[in-house]
Amino acid sequence: MEMLLMGMCVAVFGMGIAAVAFGAATRSESSDSAAQPALSLVKADAAAHFFSDRVAAPPAVPPAPAWSVPIEVLLLQIENHVRMEQAAAESFVAYPTQALLHSKTSSPFVN
């Protein structure tokens, strides 16, 4: 009887150990499988975009300036702007008011 009880205790103890070992093995596998893809994604992402998660810009090559207006036109715009500002300033100097000082210009150079 004593031998039978001792055998049963050993069997139960062994099954417990086996169950714990199985559980531990199963838990570690599942956590590894869940974490691994995320780690690999982060690593891949970090390698592609160092500081930003946006799409990486192509290699920096200074673009050739593409001016929208020829310089002659630009200079003419500046001159017209100066003339319009002078007219506005003349109005203010002739009759100084805050409204005339801050009257809006229709100069295309600044609009």
Binding site: E85, A88, A89, F92, V93, L101, H102, V110
Partner: peptide, 17 residues
Amino acid sequence: GHRLQMFQTMWLREMQR
């Protein structure tokens, strides 16, 4: 004086912008 008044006015308008 006229030049001064003109240019201080134009300067202020540019600063305001």
